[in-house]
Amino acid sequence: MDAVLVTGGSGQLGRRVIGELLEQGRAVQAISRRPGPQAAGLTWVTGDLNSAATLQRGLDGVSRVVHLATQPLRPGKDLQMTSALLGAVQDRHIEHFVYMSISGLERMQGAPYYREKLEIERRLRTSGLRLTIQRSTQFHKFVADLLGKLTLGPVTLVPTGVTLQPVEVSAVARCLAQVVQGAPAGQRRDLSGPAPEAIELLARQWHRHRARTGRVASAPIPLPLFRAWQHSAAVPEEAEPVGRPWIRWLQETA
């Protein structure tokens, strides 16, 4: 059985996708700048996706690809990495190429990262690959980390007018592991958590979970990310709810 290539294999989503594929008996090759834990059936290819040698090693013996690698703090890097990967797979028999993307991109083009992700989707659709694009909302841990960064002393300051529908990363990983082993579907229904919530409520629940005595305040915060999230832009209109809701994830996660 040919292997599945996972890019971004050491990230929080990549690690879980690899685990799901290994449990299902698939051989996995993972490209990452830093190798993760060793496991039977798993081969780490250490390097950068812009390296032809790295891509050649990673694609050797591979028939399916899950492209998860992303560097949101380096503008243009995602497009550069994906272009290199597309060039490397063109002369290979890839039965299924799965790309992980983000819900609501068309409505959030005020943020450079989201513009880049939408352009990647466009290029993938015209690449001729047997393709599935899977979008999801923001992961629980991303939202929790963001709230931590928005906290100074006892106060968490969140942007006004923002609603999110965060999703459990493990549930997304289970879906991706199933999707890549199936037939290409073009673009699948988005994945999301069970319900949309105002970021103020998410922050208050986060405070209670951490037993904080501070408070949550809201104000317009003029950052591209928060402007992009206005008017429920990050909430998909019709999504498949998966995984634990935010409050249960908080309660059950150390």
Rank of each mutant, 00 (worst) to 15 (best):
Q56E: 15
R208E: 14
L150C: 07
M100C: 14
G25H: 02
I221C: 01
Q38E: 14
G104H: 04
L150F: 09
Q178L: 08
A30D: 01
L49S: 08
D190R: 01
E119N: 10
L55V: 07
V172S: 03
L105S: 09
H231A: 09
R215F: 12
Y99K: 12
P35Y: 06
Q80T: 08
G182W: 06
A111N: 12
T253D: 11
V65R: 01
L152A: 09
P112M: 09
P222N: 04
L105E: 13
T7N: 11
V6S: 11
G11V: 02
L21G: 13
N50C: 14
H231R: 09
A39C: 02
D190E: 13
Y113K: 04
R122N: 06
I31H: 03
L68M: 04
G41F: 01
M81G: 10
G148H: 12
H96C: 02
Y113H: 14
M100Y: 09
G110Y: 04
Q230D: 00
G14W: 03
A52V: 08
R130C: 01
A198D: 14
R64V: 05
I247S: 15
Q178T: 13
A173P: 06
P222K: 00
E200H: 06
R189M: 02
Y113V: 06
L49F: 09
P112S: 12
P75S: 11
R204M: 08
P196G: 07
D48A: 13
V162N: 04
I102M: 12
T82A: 14
L201Y: 00
V235C: 04
M81P: 03
L164K: 06
V179L: 08
Q138V: 10
W206L: 07
T253Q: 14
R227Y: 04
H209V: 08
R16F: 04
F139C: 10
E237R: 13
R122T: 13
I247H: 15
H207L: 11
Y99V: 06
A27H: 00
D78A: 15
